[in-house]
């Protein structure tokens, strides 16, 4: 157990240390190289190369200070444990409906996904703010009950600053900032379509996870992040219609936006 914890601890700090170590090495090595090149042979291109190394080292050092302490591998291990718990719940309740991702305006400030207990309604009418409970009533009908669960996207949304991103014209930029910049999970994100149905293309995703049964309900982690962010930005419930891992590292997620609802 202790060995496992130590190994995990080393993994958690590895990626961060890589940039810091590289930065310190380049700064020290570059400075020594530049001084030696100037003092011994007085050849300016080599001195300039030393200066370039110092600049690169400083950049790497600064970047290392912004890398989170958790490595991708450790994050995946923790993440899959969380998914297993949700999968057990979904399986036990026999749920087959697609989750509906709700904006925080409908969930008392905490991003959640609603999994209807009795199949997907054509157009969910969430008439009030949902309580922070596991089983909630989301409409007037007797079958309008579902469970509220946290999703991978919920955790991501909490760590992002979406101030100033309020219209869906910013959607592509916001998704790119979150998936490419904030999480570093892909190279590029594009959004196609303007009305109820949108297609989000994610290029070269780096998150490689084994297929999980709960993906049929919640969608893959990438799709979940896309749906959560979209719901929050446009202020409307969103569900994942389909997703496909295409050729050349292109992951396509089709989402549907439901009508705007007033809480």
């Amino acid at each position: 157990m202790a060995a496992w914890a130590t190994s995990l601890g080393v993994q958690m700090t590895n990626s961060r240390n890589r940039y810091l170590l590289l930065g310190i090495s380049l700064m020290l090595g570059g400075a020594l190289f530049a001084i030696a090149a100037y003092a011994v042979i007085g050849y300016m291109p080599l001195v300039a190369l030393g200066v370039a190394s110092v600049i690169l080292g400083a950049i790497s050092f600064f970047l290392g200070r912004t890398v989170p302490g958790v490595s991708v591998e450790a994050g995946q291990a923790l993440f899959e444990a969380g998914l297993d718990n949700i999968a057990s719940l979904v399986e036990e309740l026999g749920l087959r409906s697609r989750a509906i991702y709700l904006p925080t305006s409908l969930t008392n400030g905490v991003p959640r996904a609603l999994i209807p207990l009795h199949g997907n309604p054509a157009s969910p009418t969430v008439g009030q703010r949902l309580e922070q409970r596991l089983i909630v009533r989301f409409g007037p009908g007797p079958e309008d009950r579902g469970i509220l669960v946290a999703t991978p996207g919920s955790a991501v949304l909490a760590s992002l600053d979406l101030k100033g991103v309020s219209t869906d014209t910013d959607l592509e930029g916001a998704l790119s900032a979150a998936i490419v910049g904030g999480l570093d999970l892909a190279n590029r994100v594009t959004v196609l379509g303007t009305d109820e149905n949108r297609t989000v293309e994610i290029f070269r995703p780096t998150l490689k996870l084994r297929h999980h049964p709960v993906y049929q309900v919640l969608g893959s982690p990438l799709a979940s992040i896309v749906a959560t962010l979209t719901a929050e930005i446009v202020g409307r419930p969103v569900s994942i219609v389909a997703e496909e891992a295409g050729k050349r590292g292109r992951h396509t997620v089709q989402i549907r936006l439901y009508d705007e609802v007033k809480a």
Partner: peptide, 28 residues
């Protein structure tokens, strides 16, 4: 993303140094 950024700068700095060295530039 960070690796791409650092690699891009490394390639640019090295290329600049090599090109200027070929033209025997001595001005730091």
């Amino acid at each position: 993303l960070y690796n791409r950024y650092v690699a891009t700068l490394a390639v640019l700095f090295t290329s600049t140094t090599v090109v200027l060295a070929v033209y025997n530039q001595q001005r730091l």
